[in-house]
């Protein structure tokens, strides 16, 4: 390791200093990696360990007395399944709409024939740099009837200037001849988009879809601001936050679910505030964790395209 030769046969002695740097970097990054992974692991092993042990913080390195009762228990908590449904629905609907609109607008803003093209493009993109603030936003949403309404999650998130910039940049890299050929064959603007451009820009749409889905899934603030009078549209994120902050109401919820199963529910399996928190955390993290390794290259590509000036 310490000695190597380059192409010209010059001997490269790395020297003591270089070797020390190597060792230190390996160790430091191992610590970094540990700090990033361990919390997830810790919560996961606790969610499948005996609850009376995890309650006292005894489960540190490996799961003890493995059981999966916790996952069955949380499914019985009133409202949790509904929250999961809302989270999945908003992620699906929101992502699909955001992606289609971003693709379409990104394409349209490359059409030289569009009336006042530059102006409308700036009109959209400039909204990245300012916002009205939460109260005017809330009042507007209230007037539009989007408070305490599922569509409050969807409509405000459809237009995402950043994604539109990504799509526009991508469309510009597609050879103009492709569109011209369609034009000659008599295809209209919409036909060119759906039949010619859409299949070509799929890679960038996939990248955007991942971003949009993660953002929808992680969204928390809009529930906080908009869904003030109803629990019907609480998302998993919001419910989890409530469980962490309101231990008392959580206890009430738990006792309502476990009354009939007292005989079977041993101390190790009965739901506790800690077990519910950890289990729900795992449930909420899991979708992101599962898609992440497969789509990491999309994420990386996304940030790199974004780094190029729009």
């Amino acid at each position: 390791m310490s000695k190597q030769k380059n192409a010209n046969g010059v001997q490269l002695d790395k020297g003591l200093g270089d070797r020390i740097i190597s060792v230190v970097t390996y160790v430091v990054y191992a610590i970094f990696a540990f700090v990033c992974v361990y919390p997830f692991y810790y919560i996961f092993i606790n969610s499948i360990s005996a609850n009376n042990l995890s309650e006292r913080g005894k489960v540190i390195l490996y799961p003890m007395e493995i059981h999966f009762q916790n996952y069955i228990n949380v499914a019985k908590i009133p409202g949790l399944l509904n929250a999961a449904k809302i989270s999945v629905l908003r992620t699906l609907i929101g992502t699909v709409l955001t992606v289609i609109v971003a693709g379409f607008l990104g394409y349209m803003f490359t059409r030289q024939t569009l009336w006042k093209r530059k102006f409308w493009y700036r009109f959209v993109v400039v909204t990245m740099y300012f916002n009205a603030g939460i109260i005017p936003w809330y009042l507007t949403m209230n007037k539009l009837g989007l408070t305490n309404n599922f569509w409050g999650y969807i409509f405000p998130t459809i237009i995402q200037p950043f994604y539109i910039i990504l799509c526009k940049t991508f469309c510009e890299s597609v050879p103009q001849e492709l569109q011209d050929a369609g034009e000659i064959d008599g295809a209209g603007t919409l036909r060119i988009f759906f039949s010619i451009m859409l299949p070509v820009i799929k890679p960038i749409l996939a990248t955007i879809a991942i971003f949009a889905a993660v953002n929808q899934w992680n969204s928390f603030q809009d529930t906080l601001l908009l869904m003030t009078n109803t629990d019907k549209y609480n998302t998993l994120q919001y419910v989890l936050f409530q469980y962490i902050n309101q231990a008392n109401s959580l206890k009430a919820l738990i006792s309502s679910t476990t009354t009939s199963t007292n005989l079977a529910a041993t101390l190790a399996r009965a739901a506790t505030a800690t077990s519910v928190r950890m289990t729900v955390t795992v449930v909420v993290v899991l979708p992101v964790m599962m898609i992440y390794p497969f789509f990491q290259r999309f994420f990386t590509k996304g940030i790199m395209i974004g780094a190029v000036k729009g």
Partner: peptide
């Protein structure tokens, strides 16, 4: 692994902190 935490929400970060 160091990029992973970027993709979880602040609520989850808080939950991890809490636990």
């Amino acid at each position: 692994v160091t990029t992973l935490p970027n993709f979880i929400s602040w609520v989850l970060v808080f939950s991890i902190a809490f636990n």
